[in-house]
């Protein structure tokens, strides 16, 4: 009956994937190497770190928060991991160390946000500075080189498939599962959608915030290992601004900055859109300054679109509110 309406809904739900598809088509026309297996695998390898960070940002934004510290914590956890590997020779221990420090930093974030009521923006900004400082202090500002077998995380393959892509795929499935199939995931949407209503529904908001930060910490730790091993060095000054890459992917992928809305696959698509954009601009030789401008414009458009579609939806609610005020 309401075909137009239905069509709009489908467009709204899948628009991000349609955008990605159109982009892939345009890219493949601009450069015939774009769709080659090598290039696609290349895009995905480059994307792995940003995508994993984007999932953490997505979970936080859905629940009404965000993390500005993930790039710095990534570097800190990364250099700790690298140096532990260099002294113990154990890949497992090195991997766990990265996760441990990622989680510790994020539990501090959670403490500030829930117990001390610090706005997440401020709390994680402070953590960004502290973590970067610790990374630089620990390495005395020097890069750690000669990582040996450590590079297997970022550069190795299992059969034909790069290990970093496997990490990305497995994490995608886990995050999708958490959001879609656990009570915790549902609670995050409720918390970000209306925290006070979540409390009044019996949801333990503080506990959930700790858990979501802890998950973010695990993701940042994994990203730290992948990043350092991909560049074959422990870079205390590495990954600057990577939290923005993550945030961008999440927002472009339809995660609403006002909380309560966002999907795993949307964020994945968002990451791919940015990855393809970077890749095609490199392939056809766009000036790197112009690349930044293009990326900035795309982010602005994504958010404008998000707010615009939300305004349409709330128009009706305002009427209802007026009504109750008039009573």
């Amino acid at each position: 009956m309401n075909k137009q309406n239905n069509k709009n809904k489908i467009m709204e739900k899948y628009s991000i994937f349609i955008v990605l598809l159109i982009m892939i088509i345009i890219c493949s026309m601009l450069n015939k190497n774009f769709l080659s297996t090598g290039n696609i695998s290349n895009i995905m390898k480059q994307l792995a770190v940003a995508t994993i960070l984007a999932y953490g940002e997505m979970l936080l934004i859905i629940s009404g928060m965000l993390d500005l510290s993930s790039g710095a914590v990534l570097a800190m956890a990364g250099v700790f991991s690298v140096s532990v590997y260099k002294s113990t020779g154990s890949l497992l221990v090195a991997f766990l160390v990265a996760i441990l420090f990622g989680v510790i930093c994020n539990l501090v974030n959670a403490l500030m946000v829930t117990n001390f009521k610090t706005p997440p923006f401020i709390a994680t900004l402070a953590m960004q500075m502290v973590a970067r400082g610790i990374a630089l202090l620990f390495t005395k500002g020097q890069n750690i080189s000669q990582l040996g077998d450590y590079v297997v995380f970022g550069q190795g393959t299992i059969g034909p498939i790069p290990i970093s892509i496997i990490f990305m795929a497995v994490i995608t499935i886990i995050i999708w599962y958490i959001l879609r199939h656990t009570r915790f995931g549902r609670s995050l949407y409720a918390i970000g959608g209306n925290e006070e209503a979540a409390i009044a529904s019996g949801i333990n908001v503080a506990k959930n915030k700790y858990v979501v930060f802890a998950i973010n910490g695990i993701l940042v730790g994994v990203a730290g290992v992948l990043f350092m091993s991909r560049v074959n060095a422990g870079l205390p000054n590495g990954a600057v601004g990577y939290e923005m890459e993550g945030l961008t992917a999440a927002i472009v992928g339809g995660t609403s900055f006002s909380g309560g809305v966002g999907t795993t696959l949307g964020t994945l698509a968002g990451a791919f859109i940015i990855g393809c954009l970077n890749n095609i601009m490199n392939l056809i030789g766009v000036d790197s300054y112009i690349q930044q401008i293009v990326k900035g414009v795309i982010i602005a458009l994504a958010v404008i679109w998000d707010i615009h579609s939300k305004n349409k939806k709330t128009a009706k609610v305002i009427l209802v509110e007026e009504k109750s005020e008039g009573k």
Partner: peptide, 21 residues
Amino acid sequence: RRRYGIIPVRSVTENASIASL
């Protein structure tokens, strides 16, 4: 209702099931 009741952006189904997940 607006402040302590509804989670505006989520579906009616989710709003109804949130307290009995």
